[in-house]
Computed example of a mutant assay.
Amino acid sequence: MWHTHRTRADLLADGLSGRQITAAVKAGELIRARRDRYLPADAPDEVVRAVRVGGRLTCLSLLRLHEVFVLTNSRLHVQLAPRMSRMRSPHDRSHRLNLAKLHGTRLHWLAPREDAGAATCASVVVALAHAVLCQAPRAAIASIDSAVNKGLIQTEDVATIFDILPAKYEVLRSLVDGRAQSGPETLVRLMLLGLGCTVDLQVEFDGVGFVDIVANGWLVVECDSRQHHADWDQRVKDYTRDLRLAQRGFAVLRLTAKDIMERPDEVLSALRGLVATRGRHSSRSRAIAAKGRSVRSQSRS
């Protein structure tokens, strides 16, 4: 498994000879990431490069491997042990890492006191703490929501994330809600909260099914991705759902994940316009209790 590296002593203890180790490296069956650090051939490139630097994969790089929502990332994120000094280029183990020219590498030193051992990756909890430092607040919350929803961390782990971080980030903790089914859904939820709306997630309606968000008891917001809404049959189902909701007096705003992530100002403007038109204290505020029910308990730490 690529989650731990092996040393030459480990391989010799496994019964390999020095010649066999050399032959396995030449044949591509083993990867020598750096001096005395060996990985299996199936190790992801990001992991190999992090070990080559002298640390462990973390932050946005690791979260993407776990398919946790990350808004954007173009760097290799590496966690280093305190006082680590023999760092190498992620591209060539024979060259020292130039701290003045990191070339797309982000080094992380913030971490709880723990024995790194032979691990090639930080824990998801530590990676999320690093991700809070590397993202805007809304994107960071979306990453934590995603990890909770996928079951990679438990709600009690959220407290540990913020214990690792400087105290100024504690204000974000109460905004975490693991009911969100996608990162874009979290981003929209936070926009609506910023507009002063009441927000319910994953609300079920008879004859309709679950909707992503209901704001102020009358505005249904669906956050659609190409993966789940590309074919015509699915679109027809979506239109039928919207029709049934409109018959019950709900306004429906269907947003694409691309617009939410790449055109957030326009999305926010649309939400603000709808909320202002209908009014925060709409007479439809009782609709959630009468016609829908939230079936997932709120995941807050």
Rank of each mutant, 00 (worst) to 15 (best):
E67D: 14
I31F: 04
L57H: 01
T58Q: 00
Q79I: 00
D45S: 11
L71Y: 11
L30P: 10
T58P: 01
D45G: 02
A81R: 15
R34L: 05
V25E: 13
T58I: 00
S85V: 14
N73H: 09
D92T: 05
F69G: 10
L60V: 10
A41F: 11
D42G: 06
V78L: 03
Y38P: 05
Q79S: 15
D42M: 05
S61M: 05
R52M: 10
P44C: 02
T72V: 10
L60A: 12
A81S: 14
S74F: 08
H91W: 15
D42Q: 08
R52C: 03
M87R: 13
V70W: 08
V68G: 02
H77C: 04
V47G: 04
N73K: 02
L57A: 06
F69K: 08
V70M: 10
R83V: 00
G28H: 11
A27M: 13
L76F: 04
L76A: 01
T58S: 14
V53P: 07
S89A: 07
V53A: 02
V48M: 01
V47Q: 00
P82T: 05
C59N: 11
I31W: 06
N73G: 05
H91E: 15
T72G: 08
R49E: 12
L60K: 14
A41K: 12
P90S: 06
R56S: 09
I31V: 15
S85Y: 10
A50L: 03
R93C: 09
L76T: 03
V53S: 02
G28C: 11
F69V: 12
Q79H: 13
A41T: 10
R52K: 04
V78P: 08
V47W: 03
C59W: 05
G54R: 08
V47S: 01
P90Q: 07
L62H: 02
S85P: 00
L80A: 09
L76D: 02
V47M: 04
A27Y: 11
P40A: 07
R56A: 14
F69N: 10
E46D: 11
N73Q: 13
A81G: 06
R49H: 07
V48L: 01
L80P: 13
V78C: 04
L39V: 09
V25H: 08
E46W: 01
H91T: 10
E67I: 00
L39E: 04
L80C: 09
L76M: 02
R49V: 02
S74Q: 14
A43D: 02
E29M: 12
V25N: 08
R56G: 00
L30R: 12
L80D: 09
V53H: 03
L63M: 08
R93G: 04
L80T: 07
L80F: 12
A33L: 07
H66R: 13
D92N: 15
C59Q: 05
P44K: 03
L30V: 07
M84D: 12
A24M: 15
A24T: 02
A81I: 06
D92E: 13
A24D: 14
L65H: 08
